[in-house]
Design a protein around this nucleic acid. Structure first.
Lengths: 134, 134
DNA sequence: GTAATGTTTACCAATAGAGTATAATTTATG
DNA sequence: CATAAATTATACTCTATTGGTAAACATTAC
């Protein structure tokens, strides 16, 4: 029930970019150093943020990263699911095969957890990066 | 961000016990068979429910398990934390040493996630086993 | 062309997850 | 008291995931 380290780093990286002047390109080394994230590891995480449309990258000299949209349009949920894939507080919620009861309709646990999960996603969706910048 | 299998099994076991006539003692084999849980594994999980005061056990002939309190007083949060320990959606929320920024006050991520976590715990606390029995 | 950047792929060690096995302990009952 | 039936405790195994590193590659400004 814990976000992994990569997600933590990704949240920090996005917040860092959100704090920069709009359009400013920050290179990996700067982000890693400021946010105290192992650079090689950060470099591996960033592409998932790019595929999710959260971040844009520029290669070559003077390259780096910048946000692909305004901080107010990027939620915690976006970042979490970009890095970890869809949230599933119980495996049975995404893959019935995992349930030894085969996601039986009789499984009240299943539907109760689905409700909790929906609310959790709602909380994460309600958190955007504009709100975190003072 | 997923509950582990043991927690899933524990939730099922508690729900099973909640459905039995009050005071009825069910042995592990029955629970395991009904809920399709590997018995040996279930036997390993039950002690954590006992330590948390959720379930009572009886050894020897005619032994088994029964709830230690009314289903309405047992929440999903109780069971989850009994099996997995305190919920921490980010490790930095319980152990500052895990944070490479040392849980800096400057870490807005930290406080935002603390808020999400509090709400998640609230959702799980609002779910009790009486409500799941029709 | 070269140096500076991100991308991709592969690799590695450590840990956690899921489950099994075995021996020990408790207890009802004949 | 002996025995069978049940939980408890401990240790073990196997696998997948996590967290991270390394090397080769691709792109771009100068």
């Amino acid at each position: 029930m814990t976000l992994n380290q990569a997600t933590d780093y990704a949240l920090r990286a996005v917040l860092f970019l959100a704090k920069q002047p709009q359009g400013e390109v920050s290179e990996a080394q700067i982000i890693a150093h400021q946010e105290i994230v192992p650079m090689r590891f950060l470099l591996k995480i960033m592409p998932s943020l790019i595929k999710a449309g959260i971040v844009k990258s520029f290669r070559g000299v003077g390259g780096g990263y910048t946000l692909a949209k305004p901080p107010g349009e990027i939620t915690f949920l976006d970042v979490v699911e970009a890095v970890e894939g869809p949230i599933a507080i119980n495996k049975c919620l995404t893959d019935y095969a995992y349930c030894t009861k085969h996601g039986a309709p009789a499984c009240e646990i299943h539907s109760a957890l689905a409700d909790v999960q929906a609310k959790l996603r709602g909380e994460l969706r309600a958190l955007n990066f504009q709100d975190l910048i003072r």
